[in-house]
């Protein structure tokens, strides 16, 4: 380990510009796809491949440098600050959708039902609409089997005590296993580190599988889709972005697991593990918010 009074400065970096090119290609491809252009999917795949190559290359470089003891304590602090504020920005991103849920549920839907200053709104727009939650809106955008528009249709909410509760237990347990792994790392017990990580990754992917099943149920059995008015919009946006983050977190933890297998990390120097664990706890806490505000209340 270097000491605090040395500066570490990397001199040349090719991965950032490659990663940017990948992301740009991917997003331009996605935009083309949304516009119905046939080149879209190809660009998306190409961009994704470049992006994955960048991630692999850049993180391999970082891991190699870290293992060769190039990072000083100061660099470690910079990385930790970076990760901390990155997670903060992610929290803000989720806050937008939680805020949207709060606003629509407590303000805009009641206004449509005539509450507050919404009396005229109700009379003039959809007089027969009664504000309830969940709702797919006063003029449900979907059509029923006969092709007729559904007006203010009843909507069955996603229950909290089935799969979602199980998923809560799964994520909370994974928070425990990752901490157990951390203790193993600190105690130089590599076996415990690896077992803890395997359990965490497995629980993470189990969570995602259950959620995929839940989505399947919602779409095929319950008729609950992204298009199911504001309930469907907020439900899928919140749980969908969370599920995406669980996937990302599980992939990060898999990389950390792989590195642990290769003998990386020691009790003093294991930023990657810490960052992954912080990210995992963040994903965990967001889920608790989701369980309470999306499913339970």
């Amino acid at each position: 380990m270097s000491t605090t009074d040395t500066y570490y400065i990397p001199h040349k970096a090719t991965w950032p510009v490659i990663g940017t090119a990948g992301l740009l290609t991917m997003l331009a491809g996605f935009a083309n796809y949304l516009n119905g252009s046939s080149i879209g999917p190809t660009m998306m795949v190409l961009g994704l491949v470049i992006f994955i190559i960048m991630l692999t290359g850049w993180f391999t470089l970082q891991a190699t440098e870290s293992e060769s003891g190039m990072y000083s304590t100061q660099v470690g602090i910079s990385y930790r600050m970076g990760m901390m504020w990155f997670i903060f920005s992610e929290i803000v991103f989720f806050a937008v959708f939680f805020g949207t849920l709060w606003y629509t549920r407590n303000l805009s839907v009641p206004w449509l039902g005539g509450e507050g200053t919404g009396a005229a709104t109700k009379e003039l727009l959809w007089p027969s609409f009664d504000a309830t939650w969940p709702t797919n809106g006063p003029k449900a955008l979907g059509v029923d089997e006969s092709g007729a528009r559904k007006f203010g249709a009843e909507l069955e909410p996603m229950g909290a005590w089935g799969l979602p509760f199980l998923n809560t237990l799964i994520l909370l347990s994974s928070g425990v296993t990752v901490t157990w792994a951390h203790h193993g790392l600190l105690a130089k017990n590599r076996d415990q580190l690896i077992k803890g990580l395997i359990a965490t990754v497995a629980l993470g992917f189990l969570f995602v599988s259950f959620q995929a099943y839940e989505y399947h149920e919602a779409y095929t059995e319950m008729g609950l889709t992204l298009g199911s008015g504001i309930y469907g919009s907020t439900f899928f946006m919140l749980t969908g972005f969370h599920g995406l983050h669980v996937c990302i977190g599980a992939i990060i933890l898999s990389v950390v697991l792989f590195r642990s297998w290769k003998g990386h990390f020691n009790p003093e120097n294991h930023f990657a593990f810490e960052a992954a664990a912080w990210y995992w706890h963040f994903v965990d806490v967001v889920w608790l918010g989701l369980f309470i505000f999306v499913y339970l209340l």
């Binding site: 949207t100 992204l226 469907g232």
Partner: peptide, 21 residues
């Protein structure tokens, strides 16, 4: 983006959303 391409109704009163949001 999702309102335009994926059928959500965050900013559409017909689905319970609100452009003011």
């Amino acid at each position: 983006l999702t309102d335009k391409f994926f059928g959500t109704s965050f900013f559409d009163a017909a689905g319970g959303g609100d452009p003011v949001l």
